[in-house]
Nucleic acid binder design. Structure first.
Ligand SMILES: [Mn+2]
Ligand SMILES: [Mn+2]
Ligand SMILES: [Zn+2]
Ligand SMILES: [Zn+2]
Lengths: 152, 152
DNA sequence: ATTTTTATTTAGAATAATTCTTGATCTCAA
DNA sequence: TTGAGATCAAGAATTATTCTAAATAAAAAT
């Protein structure tokens, strides 16, 4: 048996595809997302990936992010019309976007919380996916802003 | 007293701005959204607006949608990376996107439902806005699909 | 091991939604 | 009426993303 076996090393296992290959490039892109779980954009992933594999191209980064999203290994996260960001956290979670530091934070669902119960869904709707995005100010920026506002 | 007084006829009243003018073009764009509350894109609004005001330009439609969004008269709705759609429904509501008919439906919040309670928000977070988007199949398409699937 | 097939990578061109620029036109208020 | 600021309009520019086509790499078949 060879060395470590992470989720990223088993190929077609996790996808809905019969043929998803965890290539060197895809591994690098996946590792970039796992290294810093800060929801980078494709361009940011590209820059970081070049550190590990100088020859990789932006097109390939886009390809990898696309196929891995399709395969369900990562998630694409959209905030308004900004560039898509990517997230390797597969638990169901919401995203909190701090408008001060422009960081995106993962927000976990409370146990037993029923998301769909809060909504007046028409009878017979089939829900495949629920996307929750919150905007505001994170605790760190909130206290910093409070201080700068009181000193005037 | 002249004719009807809708929300769209009072100018700076509803905005955070000191100077928002409800111009002829903005009224046309607003009325397009009110006429068919189906979340059209900017291009769709443009086509419909030309019916009421042939000389209007796409740039102006974009400008109107932008300023009216800023003013809080309408909402911008984003589904994935697709073109933004626009919605004049100011009540807090979620959006349901049917992947069959590609229609967007407004989903109202149940009374007394507490959206933020479902999430493990870090202490001290300030939430300004919560965005909920659901994807699936609407009742109409759901039953239609069932029939076409069983006849084979 | 060699060939064949298929998937993937890559660079650059193309696309599409949106934003920007600039000058004309309109509106408000002095 | 006149001047300042707001808005409109046409087209250029931007930007994230997708597409294209040829080269490369990996898997399967021989
Ligand atoms: Mn996330
Ligand atoms: Mn709506
Ligand atoms: Zn912050
Ligand atoms: Zn439908």
């Amino acid at each position: 048996m060879p060395h470590s076996s992470s989720i990223a090393e088993s190929a077609s296992t996790h996808s809905g595809f019969g043929d998803f290959r965890m290539t060197k490039q895809r591994k690098v892109v996946y590792d970039v997302l796992m290294d810093e779980r800060d929801h980078p954009t494709a361009s940011e992933v590209f820059l970081r990936a070049k550190g590990k594999m100088p020859g990789i191209s932006l097109a390939t980064v886009y390809n990898c992010l696309e196929t891995m999203t399709q395969a369900g290994l990562i998630k694409q996260v959209n905030v308004d019309r900004e560039a898509s960001r990517y997230c390797p956290n597969l638990r169901p979670h919401a995203h909190f976007f701090c408008s001060e530091c422009e960081q995106i934070y993962d927000i976990d669902l409370r146990r037993h919380a029923d998301l769909e119960a809060a909504w007046e869904l028409p009878e017979g709707s089939r829900i495949d996916h629920v996307d929750v995005a919150m905007k505001g100010v994170c605790p760190k920026c909130g206290s910093a802003t409070d201080l700068s506002k009181s000193e005037n």
